[in-house]
Simulated scan of single mutants.
Amino acid sequence: MSRIRSEKGDAVTRRSPGRLTISDVAAKAEVSLSTVSRVMNGSTKVDPALTERVREAAFALGYAASPLARSLVLGKTQTVSVVVPDLGNPTFQGALRGLSSGAASANYHVLVADSFEDPSKEAELAIEARRRSDGIVLCAPRMSDDELNALLPQIAPAVVINRTPTSARVPVVAADYRSGFAQLLNHLNGLGHKRLLFLGGAEGSASNRDRLAAVDDFGLAHPETTIDVLSGYVTFAEGYASANAVIDSKATGVLAFNDLVAMGLLSALSERGVSVPGDVSVTGFDDIQFAQYTTPPLTTAAVPTPELGAQAWARMWDLLNDRQPAYNLSFGPLVVPRGTTGPIS
């Protein structure tokens, strides 16, 4: 089998014996190869009468364009890439589910690259992934603002989840971590807790900076409350390892960076005979699917991560079709009170 070019330069396939190709459809419809190519790939610029003739010919012959042939004609891969900091984190898995569902409805595939929480790898991963796809989604990138702003023009079209670039103009969908964390602080304050501890996340995390901003706001409004901050807690294991620091802090309320950290802490406190919420109240963040099944069930702030992914895909689809993407979107997390928080004893 060999490839030829139509008069418009479109890549097509020469017929092999017994196998239908675009040439057969063109011959039956009595149109050019380029016209068939445009019709098969959904172009709206072909005369409606010619479009109908091509479709009738394809139906009569039982011809369906293969994804590979379509990619060759359009110069597209029918793939979008996603770069995430940690594929093992259920929060990012939720966003991927929402994005993948939308992509599948448009016959697109999703290529995933994991930076393993290493900001130094993100730009290289993103550039390489973009070479293999038609567009890219950066999910909560950890790199600096300057690095992000420099990268985005190189990998366009791009959409960003849970991060707002300071200068590059790209579609953004995000959760309002600042307001969500403020709600958790107010929740513990309403239960009478005046000595709090925040098990903060990675230093380069923008969502961690948003949480710290909420801590600063709360501290100014509630000078009678003490809020200590520790850094570097992202995973279940790190939450588990924080137990001694939590006990030594004498805090009556602990706010974990995310649900994984909170769940790790709950496990370690249980082993040490520390009662939750009798001795200390604990909150998470994200409301991953396991949060309601901890012992006791975890108080957290719910983030609609599948919807974040779905909205990111909607904006990517607009970019891929040369349309103005929808406005940037921010979701406000809501506190879900459960059994790990209670009145100070």
Rank of each mutant, 00 (worst) to 15 (best):
V282G: 00
P277S: 05
S281H: 11
E307K: 12
A291S: 15
G284D: 01
T299V: 06
T294N: 08
P304H: 05
A314T: 05
Q289I: 13
D286M: 04
P304K: 03
G309W: 07
T283E: 04
D279A: 10
T294W: 09
A312F: 00
F285C: 01
A310Y: 10
G309N: 08
V282A: 00
S275G: 12
F290I: 13
T294M: 11
R272E: 09
Q289S: 15
P297E: 12
T300N: 05
A314G: 09
Q311L: 13
T300A: 04
Q311F: 06
G278S: 03
V276G: 00
I288C: 12
A314F: 07
G284M: 02
D287V: 04
S275E: 12
R272A: 07
F285L: 04
D287N: 13
Q311S: 15
D286Q: 08
R315D: 10
V303Q: 02
W313F: 08
T283N: 05
D286I: 06
P277F: 08
T305A: 12
Q289V: 14
W313V: 01
L308Q: 04
T299S: 07
T300K: 06
Y293C: 15
S275K: 12
T300F: 09
S281A: 13
E307N: 12
A310T: 11
D279N: 08
V280W: 02
V282L: 03
I288H: 09
V276N: 00
E307V: 15
P306K: 14
W313K: 05
G273V: 03
G309V: 08
Q292A: 14
P297D: 13
P277E: 05
D287G: 08
D287S: 12
S281P: 06
D287M: 06
P304T: 11
V274D: 00
R315I: 02
A301V: 05
F290V: 15
V303M: 02
V303E: 01
S281Q: 06
A291N: 10
A301F: 08
I288V: 15
D287P: 09
T299E: 02
G278C: 04
Q289G: 13
G278K: 03
I288M: 12
D279M: 02
L308A: 03
T305I: 11
S275A: 13
D287Y: 08
S270W: 11
T305Q: 13
G309M: 08
R315F: 05
A310G: 12
A310N: 10
P306L: 09
W313G: 03
G278P: 03
P306S: 13
D286Y: 05
T300G: 01
D287C: 09
Q292E: 15
P277T: 04
D286T: 10
Q292W: 15
E271P: 14
V274W: 00
Y293W: 15
D286C: 09
T300E: 05
